[in-house]
Amino acid sequence: MTALGVVFRPQLPPERLRDVARAADAAGLEELWLWEDCFLESGIAAMAAALAWTERLRVGVGLLPVPFRNAALTSMETATLHRLFPGRAKLAVGHGVQDWMAQVGARAESPMTLLTEHLSAMRALLRGERVTTQGRYVRLDGVALDWPPKEGAAVYVGATGPRTLRLAGAAADGTILTAGRTPDEVRRARELIEEGRTEAGRTGPHEVVAYFNAATGPGADARIEAELAASGDAGKTEAGVAGDAGAVAEAVRRIADAGADTVILQPTADEPDVEGFVRFVAGEVRPLVA
């Protein structure tokens, strides 16, 4: 069955997160996803708070930009969250927006090399291994976590371009696709992920999580149109949906049929009732999505 969730956008003030997370938990929504965009809200701090405020909700961060982070520290934070909230934390790493990385003095000359090294070290540390590596960017000397996750921890990659999608398939446990993709683009992304998996000889599960723009209620069509225009996706009518539960569910099914295992509905930046949107997705859309 396709898993379903909602994005809590960091353009909302942090103090709104508790009410939205609790509304999602009470409504039976499966997942709530956060961003770590510069310079809005911390992904790790927001995730820890959302998990602590809820009982069963899975919470994801898509994504943590690796130029910002040391691989050992990211692994420590990930392991701690998995031990505190088993089975409920989902973390993705990625390149980050390069202009923002330059703005904080962290832009890498080779983002692909950095992400590859970070992923390799992080996944080994989370498996409980002692890691020594002297890469171009990631350097660890006999590092091991004292408290690795008891049952392992999946590491996701946020990917856009072909090279990163192939890397996600080859070296990560799952992939996050940003909003603005049509079903055909999701299908192509899945193909690239599978190419990476095949080249690396990987045969285990690989979850694809796709964000998707959605709006309902008064002015929904205009809000989706403005959202797509603002993100450079004007004219891509299949990159978002506006309408009632039936229309949204049908769009979710198209994205799932294209290769997404989990669909995370992203409200517009001007969504007037985020808690209401969460309840709409959980109570009205979810029953219509097989």
Rank of each mutant, 00 (worst) to 15 (best):
K90V: 15
T116N: 15
M101R: 02
R83Y: 09
I44Y: 15
I44P: 12
A79K: 01
M76W: 09
S120K: 12
H82P: 13
H82N: 13
M76R: 04
M101F: 07
H118Q: 11
W100H: 14
L40S: 10
M122P: 12
H118A: 14
W100A: 07
G87T: 00
G62D: 03
A79N: 01
T116C: 12
G94H: 05
P67E: 01
G60L: 05
R123W: 06
T113A: 10
M47C: 11
L115N: 13
E41W: 15
L91M: 10
T74V: 15
L57T: 05
A52L: 10
R107D: 08
D99I: 12
W33Q: 01
S75P: 11
R123F: 03
A124W: 03
E55G: 07
R127F: 09
M47R: 00
R107K: 08
G60V: 04
L32I: 04
F68T: 13
W100G: 03
G105H: 01
E36G: 07
A52S: 14
A89P: 09
M112I: 14
S120W: 15
L119A: 09
S120P: 13
A72C: 14
L32M: 09
E55W: 02
G62E: 01
E30Y: 13
A108R: 03
A102S: 11
A106D: 10
R127P: 09
A92W: 01
L64C: 12
V61W: 02
H82I: 07
R107C: 05
T80S: 14
L64S: 04
R127I: 11
F39M: 01
D99M: 12
P86L: 03
L57K: 04
R123N: 06
S120E: 15
E31I: 11
T80H: 07
R123H: 09
V93H: 01
L34P: 05
L73W: 08
R88N: 04
P111G: 02
R107H: 11
D37Q: 10
A89E: 03
L81T: 03
L63R: 00
V61N: 00
W100T: 07
V59K: 02
E36V: 12
H118C: 12
L114E: 11
L119C: 11
V59M: 11
L73G: 06
T116A: 14
V61R: 00
F85I: 05
L126R: 01
M47W: 05
L63K: 00
S42D: 13
A124I: 06
L57H: 08
K90P: 08
T74G: 14
T78D: 02
E117D: 13
T78C: 05
L32T: 02
G94L: 05
A72T: 14
M122G: 11
T80A: 15
T116H: 15
A89C: 09
L126G: 06
A106Y: 08
T74K: 00
G60A: 09
R69A: 09
R56F: 05
E77M: 10
I44C: 07
H95W: 12
G62I: 02
T54G: 07
F39R: 00
E30I: 02
A71P: 14
T54A: 03
T54H: 01
M122F: 09
L119R: 05
V93C: 10
A89M: 04
Q103G: 13
L73I: 15
A52C: 09
